[in-house]
């Protein structure tokens, strides 16, 4: 029988009110066969972490266009860790300078996708990050 769809959460933390990009990605991931939980605008890190817990997603994707990724991404990571979600990877989409990327990748996020990232690239990365490890297989 076919495998189950990958479940992911797409969230927009912070105050910027543009979710067009997040919605385009959400649709693209749906078309790649994923189940995408979309929570809407202005989510606090605590809200995102709690949603990830209740929805039992395999990955959380953040869309941050406000430029505040250096505070928001680590804050979401910390909120998730506090709920015991260390095993759920966090990825980030937005305009993130190289220096910031390196710092984030070393601490809080598993991948960063800039505005030039193709959907295929994102899909492949998410599949890689959510592939179940041996001990998690049914």
């Amino acid at each position: 029988m076919s495998s189950q769809p990958i479940r992911i959460l797409i969230a927009k933390p912070g105050l910027d009110g543009h979710d067009r990009g997040a919605k385009v990605i959400a649709r693209g991931l749906r078309d790649a066969g994923m189940e995408v939980i979309y929570t809407g605008l202005r989510q606090t890190p605590a809200m995102i972490a709690e949603s990830a817990l209740q929805e039992d997603v395999a990955l959380v994707g953040l869309s941050i266009l406000s430029g505040s990724h250096m505070t928001l991404a680590p804050a979401v990571r910390e909120a998730m860790d506090q709920l015991g979600l260390q095993d759920i990877p966090l990825v980030l989409g937005g305009i993130v300078p190289d220096g910031d990327q390196r710092q984030l990748l070393s601490a809080s996020v598993a991948a960063v996708f800039g505005p030039g990232a193709s959907l295929d690239e994102i899909v492949t990365a998410i599949r890689g990050l959510t592939a179940p490890s041996e001990d998690e297989r049914p």
Partner: peptide, 21 residues
């Protein structure tokens, strides 16, 4: 679920924001 891709967008939480926390 989309019958074409087998994927789905689950968006009901957008309207349930007030229940957070």
């Amino acid at each position: 679920t989309s019958p074409f891709s087998g994927g789905a967008i689950l968006g009901d939480r957008i309207r349930m924001r007030e229940l957070a926390g």
